[in-house]
């Protein structure tokens, strides 16, 4: 205890002397330097303490802001998802609208009652064979009705109806091996039979063995076709097969104009209207061909002797007889428009 007292007295004396010196000489350089040094050491303590306090004190507000931002973020994300879905829907509707707008401008063959249908189902195993559409007997569809599809602003041959159910129908595509359609080449008067091969290409048989054929010729349905109206584009010649010396005819490969993988809306040309649908549109096409079956053989000879046509996709209309009184095109368009099922037009 005595030792502690002595030490305490000594410490008290030293500290008292020091503090009295500090108090007595507040303006002297050593004291000011000592105070400045002490401030230099201890001031950051208060400074950083205040900074930390401000940071901590602001935390609840920042947390509230963070929570509010998170809620707002969630709401915006949901809105963005809705917007994306809306954009997707608008895009799909825009594409459909564009297709339908082009389809409405298409001319439909005379004497037929067109009905626009949607492709409802297709079987990947039978991709080139058939598909199912969403119209059946309820829409006046009947067996062997020709089915056309829009392609770059015109109607092209797709197939025919082979099965009619109350609300749906099965369409046999031209590419099915059981399909066949009489056709002619645009470069001349060569007629042949286009047959499916269960693949992406068609085969056109029974072309004159002596005829000069070239790739690129357009292939149209013939007036002799039992199913299709005449002059409907089937495709173009993709390849001329080498002549077979054992056959009396030539054949070519035809690339169909209707791509089986991109069919969405189709036009079925009904033979009879539904009740209350009215008469078929008075379609007097300037391009309506005159069918002269007997002339096929003679015209084939003429085609053989004629120079080969240029291989191009934009070929002038082939083998047409000028009509006695050309009909204006505009009324035909109007008639075609009227012929479209109003429900479909909507």
């Amino acid at each position: 205890m005595q030792r502690e007292t002595r030490i305490a007295n000594f410490v008290l004396g030293a500290i008292s002397a020091l503090t009295l010196l500090l108090l007595s000489l507040p303006l002297s350089t050593p004291v000011r330097s000592f105070k400045a040094g002490l401030g230099y050491v201890l001031n950051p303590f208060a400074y950083h303490g205040e900074t930390g306090y401000q940071r901590v004190a602001g935390s609840p507000q920042r947390i509230r802001q963070l929570l509010r931002a998170d809620i707002e973020n969630e709401a915006l994300r949901a809105e963005l998802r809705r917007g994306e879905w809306l954009a997707t829907t608008v895009s799909a509707l825009s594409l459909e609208n564009e297709r339908l707008r082009r389809a409405l401008a298409l001319k439909t063959p005379a004497g037929r009652f067109p009905a626009w249908v949607h492709v409802m189902e297709r079987d990947p195993v039978h991709w080139y064979r058939s598909l199912v559409v969403d119209a059946g007997a309820d829409r006046g569809i009947s067996l062997n009705d020709p089915v056309l599809g829009p392609r770059e602003g015109r109607l092209v041959a797709v197939g025919r109806v082979v099965d009619v159910r109350p609300n749906t129908s099965t369409v046999l595509l031209l590419t099915d091996e059981l399909s066949a359609a009489a056709a002619f080449l645009s470069s001349g008067t060569l007629e042949g039979l286009v047959q499916g091969q269960d693949g992406p290409r068609l085969r056109m048989n029974y072309l004159n063995a002596e005829a000069s054929l070239s790739a690129g010729d357009l292939v149209y349905t013939s007036p002799t076709s039992a199913t299709f109206p005449p002059d409907v584009l089937i495709g173009h010649v993709a390849r001329v097969n080498p002549r077979d010396p054992f056959l009396t005819f030539q054949s070519v490969e035809v690339a169909p104009a209707a791509d089986a993988s991109s069919l969405q809306e189709l036009m079925i040309l009904r033979a009879r209207p539904l009740e209350g649908e009215g008469k078929p549109p008075a379609y007097t096409s300037a391009f309506s061909p005159v069918i002269v079956p007997a002339a096929v053989a003679t015209s084939t000879a003429a085609a053989v002797s004629s120079p080969p046509q240029a291989s191009t996709m934009t070929v002038p209309r082939p083998r047409r007889r000028a009509p006695a009184k050309p009909a204006p095109v505009q009324p035909d368009d109007a008639a075609a428009f009227e012929a479209v099922d109003p429900e479909e037009a909507r």
């Binding site: 009295l20 010196l21 108090l23 004291v31 105070k35 002490l38 201890l42």
Partner: peptide
């Protein structure tokens, strides 16, 4: 000394007072 640093005057007063209090 920490308390005195914050003062404008009487640098050392708080140090002396606290030292005396402890004593």
């Amino acid at each position: 000394l920490y308390l005195d640093v914050a003062r404008a005057e009487l640098f050392g007063a708080s140090a002396l007072v606290l030292t005396l209090a402890a004593y």
